[in-house]
Design a protein around this nucleic acid. Structure first.
Lengths: 200, 200
DNA sequence: TAGCAAATCACTACTAATTGGGATGCACTA
DNA sequence: TAGTGCATCCCAATTAGTAGTGATTTGCTA
């Protein structure tokens, strides 16, 4: 079988991780060529010159550049976008990618994600029912996470306790999470709150 | 100058990261020999046979094994312990290590941390104030954070609901935290739980 | 402009959690 | 051995939160 060479752009701040990927794929038997980059605009530039077929991207780096990223994806639909995650990330963010590599994945699993470029039913169906919470719901969520009671939340937000309860109901329905603890983890995971700000 | 060879044990779940370290140090010009391991007891075994001088450890892996880890450190005081962190970690946990490598560190910085074995003003102070909660209280806390009700916790731990309530009372008194949300953040901050394991 | 989603408020019935008292047995240690 | 902390269990009174249902106003947009 003829093995085509794949050009891969890597957008990842960690040298360790970059070298690790480099090492693993060089042992995989496939033909890859890695290009390291440190900005989205450089990726766009490479894409415009057809210099790569697949991009491995650390999602933290595009967190506040969703529009720019989406625009690049739209302009170069042939490119496969692979998220490289250390921990876990917001569904909405990850749903922008075609595939996901977790940093703890095995060599085979990683290679698999970087090959079979044509076969496109690679998971990531991630049913997109992850409706974002409304502004007010996020206000309430933040209060919940600070440990305030419904009555306190009502006072702080100048609304009645009934409204607070309504918002809580909606939050629970939208997220499928009922416990304060679960909501806290949800909020941390989705960067609705910053862990550092809430430490005792 | 004579370059001594350093034997390094690596306790890190990610192959990518392991290979990355391997790549970086092989280019550093120093002489290292890497041994990958996947358990603390294996580390102890290697240490007992004098097979390494320095250990690179992902702190997540010793989170609930602080005592075992401290015991190994105590038994083999000549070994240098290096934490390899991805993001942000609890200070108490990191204070158990001699040095810290961040995953985003440069090649030079990493090499620096892995050399100069003799020169070090070890600040292995290990302020052991983390004996706040009893084992059983931590069991209950973990259940709370999973969002279980008192009754469910009682069933899971095979104790009565009254005991659960007692433990909760003690946890609240000891930590000064009353809300589930606050306790969740406490547990995450103190690495009693791993954020990744609690995704909903 | 008609429809929709968000934000607000309200009621009832129900369930869960908190608070503040107890008690017992066990293991460790000063 | 007396004291301490831990784990277990119990009760009563109170407070807090959930589930289900329904309503009004406002602003955006198809």
């Amino acid at each position: 079988m003829n093995k085509p060479s794949t050009n891969i752009v890597v957008f990842e701040p960690s040298l360790i991780v970059f070298e690790g990927i480099s090492n693993i794929i060089s042992k995989s038997g496939h033909h890859f060529h890695l290009i390291r980059t440190d900005s989205l605009s450089e990726i766009q530039n490479h894409a415009a010159h057809g210099r790569f077929d697949l991009a491995i991207v650390n999602p933290t780096l595009i967190q506040n550049k969703n529009k720019e990223f989406a625009s690049i994806q739209k302009n170069f639909p042939a490119i496969i976008w692979v998220a490289l995650v250390y921990n876990f990330f917001d569904h909405n963010l990850l749903s922008q990618f075609d595939r996901i590599i977790n940093i703890t994945d095995s060599a085979e699993s990683i290679s698999k994600q970087l090959t079979n470029i044509s076969s496109n039913e690679n998971h990531l169906s991630l049913e997109d029912e992850q409706e974002l919470l409304s502004d007010r719901e996020i206000d309430v969520l933040k209060q919940i996470i600070k440990g305030f009671s419904n009555k306190e939340i009502a006072d702080h937000l100048n609304i009645s306790i009934h409204t607070v309860i309504s918002h809580r109901k909606n939050i629970s329905q939208k997220t499928g999470i009922k416990s304060q603890a679960g909501l806290t983890i949800y909020a941390i995971s989705n960067k609705i709150i910053l862990l550092e700000d809430y430490k005792n």
